[in-house]
Design a protein around this nucleic acid. Structure first.
Ligand code: FES
Ligand code: FES
Lengths: 143, 143
DNA sequence: CTAAATAAAGATATTAATATCCTTTTATCT
DNA sequence: AGATAAAAGGATATTAATATCTTTATTTAG
């Protein structure tokens, strides 16, 4: 459903939102990759992508790290689009050039409603909602 | 959502079901790969997988080809499982070892219902239903 | 029986996703 | 100012998915 990168991205955003609900301190790469149990260097790349996509803010330097702009409302669809692109929402399920009501593929009308429901759920779920769920054992720091 | 292989597989099954609704003749690799506009050799591999998974029957030799056992009821979930495995239905969306109600990830309860709806739709849609939709331009033979 | 046509199988090639490594830039601390 | 610690960026490595090529096995037509 989601790429590995996207899975990490969702975990990252959830973890940072979770952390920042408690304190305003910046969250650093090391803490993040340990918390979500992901490879450090690869996680750095995803953090870069999220920052470029303006879903995260960052500051460099000795006390640098990542943080969220609290005034910004971010939902799951934003994250998925930033990392995997819009294909989950827009592309034809069978790989045809365009997904369209006229000239539909054999799955189009079969799954249109289900896809839309999924899309709407992702659009309507913001990161602070999922941050409240941060308690999975073995990841998200046992504290 | 589905792998490229799985996309081809669904097209293959839809096309064969469509063809066999009209005539009982076997359907060959060449006809299939032209019809669904897929690379011939790769399509052959997927046909092999589908045959091994018992979703298709085949006969070799000069008049050989592929065909469906009409007494067998095949749905979309069968095809997806045969090619992509059960991960879409069973795996944790964030890549954790197991998807379980206790020890859920941050997406588990958010998307559980939507995943189930999708799964049930795939389970309840059989290939003859989608075969009726075979008319996408540029693929599935303009005839 | 032989040639032809087909699916099956195995080996290899290419491409994209995942992951690591090394260097550069930026900010802070002493 | 210089050392340190952090993110950013670029280059490379590894792995998995996609795709092709070649050979083998099977069946039928002639
Ligand atoms: S045309 Fe294939 S999903 Fe819409
Ligand atoms: S535990 Fe992650 S989807 Fe169920």
């Amino acid at each position: 459903m989601f790429s590995k990168s996207c899975e990490y991205a969702i975990k990252i955003m959830a973890f940072i939102a979770f952390k920042q609900a408690k304190s305003k301190e910046l969250v650093g790469l090391d803490l993040i990759s340990e918390a979500i149990d992901s490879p450090r260097a690869f996680t750095a790349k995803i953090l870069q992508q999220l920052t470029k996509a303006r879903l995260l803010k960052s500051t460099r330097g000795r006390t640098g790290g990542f943080f969220l702009d609290k005034s910004q409302n971010i939902n799951l669809a934003d994250i998925v689009k930033a990392i995997d692109g819009p294909k989950l929402f827009e592309d034809c399920l069978l790989g045809f050039d365009k997904c369209q009501d006229d000239n539909p593929c054999v799955l189009h009308y079969q799954l249109k409603k289900e896809r839309n429901t999924l899309k709407n759920k992702l659009l309507s779920t913001d990161i602070y909602t999922i941050a409240k769920r941060v308690n999975r054992q073995k990841a998200y720091f046992k504290e």
